[in-house]
Write a protein that binds this DNA or RNA. Structure first.
Lengths: 122, 122
DNA sequence: TTATCATATGAATTATTGTTCATATGTATT
DNA sequence: AATACATATGAACAATAATTCATATGATAA
């Protein structure tokens, strides 16, 4: 329907508005793969159930059942979310008889969360 | 269909497995509202387009058009995402004629991202 | 081995969200 | 006023993901 779409690219201006800036930034931008991984990590943090699980684990290692109890959610829901955290290597676990105890995998998590808290409360 | 669901609660065990742990953690856990806000913040970081926008802005303030050019995406897509970042108070902007320049709102963002990079690359 | 408990998981459902397309708004230029 | 350009936005569509339900697995105790 549009009158002319010969060499009309979807992207804004052909004559870039600030070609120097565009070039400089494009050069310095980290690899897409790394940026994708960063987004994936934050995506895991971007759910309130998982945030609450992580914050609970700041206090103590816990079994699935106890986490479900603290959060007032079903065992199934917690187990599904723990799988997500496990796949992201954010939690580790140990088995003791029937019970499985989860804990946080490393300390960056606490640092990242502390910064997030500061950002929100400032 | 289930034989007995009289006082069978959805949540795992009535006799909590570790009542002391449950109580201690429940007491220390921050307010749900705060944890919800944290999740919301991370949700904003949890998209690779927004991550790329933010990382581009680490280098320099940029107009919408240039960001679209650097990321190889449409002006509309970028504009929608900038709105999300704006609503989360993660970016600020200034208008100069027809052009709107965006930049990062504060330094916590860089700190949080640096920690995320470290976590991924360790 | 059978029964029971803690946890894990597949399928289905519902809700959320990123991008596109079309178009509106706002600013400058003629 | 009319045109052109940069940006913003509403609606629609497609994809992703969180929870529930039912059931499977794995471990212990009787």
């Amino acid at each position: 329907m549009s009158a002319n779409n010969e060499n009309t690219v979807e992207i804004c201006c052909e004559d870039k508005v600030h070609p120097e800036v565009v070039k400089a930034v494009a050069d310095k931008l980290p690899d897409d793969e790394l940026l994708y991984d960063v987004a994936e990590l934050f995506k895991v943090f971007g759910d309130s159930t998982r945030v609450r699980i992580i914050c609970a684990l700041f206090e103590s290692e816990m079994c699935v059942c106890d986490i479900a109890d603290v959060l007032g959610m079903t065992q199934s829901a917690i187990s599904h979310q723990l799988r997500v955290l496990k796949q992201a290597r954010l939690v580790k676990y140990r088995r003791d008889g029937k019970t499985v105890y989860y804990s946080l995998a490393d300390d960056h998590i606490q640092t990242i969360f502390n910064q997030a808290f500061e950002h929100i409360m400032e």
